[in-house]
Design a protein around this nucleic acid. Structure first.
Lengths: 127, 127
DNA sequence: ATCCATTACTTGCATATTGCAAGTAATGGA
DNA sequence: TCCATTACTTGCAATATGCAAGTAATGGAT
């Protein structure tokens, strides 16, 4: 990454900067490709912010997986942590622009899912 | 599933018919939520049909994973197998309508990825 | 006829990820 | 003092992944 040749605002990219390939689909799946991450993004898009709120979603994510994913989502720049109280220090989570911009992807998936899982129901902010 | 009460063209659904929840996003991720499945769909949308063609994609999927995913994609109704020769019997794969209809989802993901992985490159049918 | 290549997988095994349950730290309220 | 709440962490068994090698059925070249 830092190979001592100044190129302001850019740098030489190598294959290793991308996990598997330069394809945007592969890049996206390196960060989002599992059973849980996009469900957390869905919840955030629906307005959920706190740990307990994510736990109450109908898929019942395990607490260790939730903690792991929130950490990874933060370090990948999809969410930010913000303290909502001191004593005890407590954080809530919010989507960055990168995270918010997944809205159309989720919407396309929902549009597709409503056709192929006709008995599925789109979640509202309260479910 | 079959509980002896006739309801032509429909049946009583229960939570267990859906892996984790009734949400179309969760239903979709139950079938597509991993690092490889959508890359195979991408390849099929680009026109790839045969085992060796999938193996030459730049992400270098392992052969056992590819065999497993093709099997799962077939049993989930995303692809069909069709013999392209006898002696030895050899199959190629094609997307069903369910699979083809993921095109807009992939496109939304690519549109997003081109913004957030600006050095990524969209694959052409030959790459 | 023998050898090598190709295609489409399967198998074995070490490592990584997941799911489930339980535990922890720091508080607030009855 | 005791119980509840919030946001996690830890332990561990089960499952999935990655890598290398092996297999079966053929075709083509020497």
């Amino acid at each position: 990454m830092d190979n001592n040749c100044y190129q302001f605002m850019t740098y030489n990219i190598t294959q290793s900067d991308f996990e598997r390939s330069f394809c945007p689909v592969a890049c996206a799946l390196d960060e989002l490709g599992d059973k849980w991450t996009l469900l957390i993004i869905r919840d955030l898009l629906l307005g959920k912010k706190r740990y307990q709120e994510f736990l109450t979603s109908p898929e019942h994510i395990a607490t260790n997986i939730l903690a792991d994913r929130l950490k990874k989502l933060e370090s990948a720049g999809f969410v930010t942590q913000q303290a909502y109280q001191q004593k005890p220090l407590r954080y809530q989570y919010a989507l960055t622009q990168k995270g918010k911009d997944l809205g159309p992807v989720l919407q396309a998936l929902v549009d597709w899912g409503k056709i192929y899982y006709p008995n599925s129901k789109v979640l509202s902010p309260t479910s």
